[in-house]
Design a protein around this nucleic acid. Sequence first.
DNA 1: AAAAACGCAACCGCAAATGTTACAATTCAT
DNA 2: ATGAATTGTAACATTTGCGGTTGCGTTTTT
Lengths: 142, 142
Amino acid sequence: MKRNSRLSLALHTLCHMASDPGRVRTSADIADHAGTNPVVVRRVLGKLRQAGLLSSEKGHAGGWQLAKPAHGITLADVYLALDERLVSRDTGDTEPSHCHVEEGLQTRVSEVLEDIEESLVQRLRETSITEIHPKSCSYCDD
Amino acid sequence: MKRNSRLSLALHTLCHMASDPGRVRTSADIADHAGTNPVVVRRVLGKLRQAGLLSSEKGHAGGWQLAKPAHGITLADVYLALDERLVSRDTGDTEPSHCHVEEGLQTRVSEVLEDIEESLVQRLRETSITEIHPKSCSYCDD
DNA sequence: AAAAACGCAACCGCAAATGTTACAATTCAT
DNA sequence: ATGAATTGTAACATTTGCGGTTGCGTTTTT
């Protein structure tokens, strides 16, 4: 696991789940397969649960599974669930610079980036996680 | 200097230069105005020089200025000059995961993101740096 | 020769993200 | 009931990227 790993981990896991929706997986299983740590998995999948994409059960024989039909889950759902943003949200923490160039600049650039963000989500909404898996996977145990 | 500062610094500086193309500015001047450090300025503007947007002169009375007419410089030129990428370029450093889900995923997601990247650049290309500056700036000394 | 500027390399320090450990709470099997 | 398995979460450690800083060599003008 290295960079941009939250989104990557989330999508990977969901795709596996989509190809065998009945199976309940533990965070340890998932972490093993993804080459990371159970706690990291729970962190990321927790976001997906908050967004209603996954459900988890505690205790013996507990674990994670899809909370709704896989074909209804799009890349956009995942992207948004994780609070990912290409456009770094302007937190307004930049002190006013007393410089008109700066203001005009911010405005222009923000306009474009907001638009782009929106069209990205629109595009992501067109692909469901069921459309990812190419065929049965001989290496993975799904 | 804090957020997304390379692009921000580059655009800000270019816009000022566009409004007074004759003037040669030192990295110290620019750093002062931008609230940062001359070395950082040289780092960023160096990229713009490599891309042919700026020229710099060493020695006494040296400094930076536009290398071509301002109206011919678009936001896309700057974005590309800095090697900015929404899509984190796959450097191929991810070891093959022996997992078909992973491969299919990479492919699909990359397709979408590449498309988005392209349309972003297309959008940025529509705005020249001369279109940013709202009016004469009473605070800045340009 | 001195001053002013860039070019560059080598660090420092901070902030964000990931990785790790620990432990409480919950659930199931026996 | 007890124990094992699992999530939830907090706290801490480690890594990484980036801006900031320092230092010094090179170039140009005076």
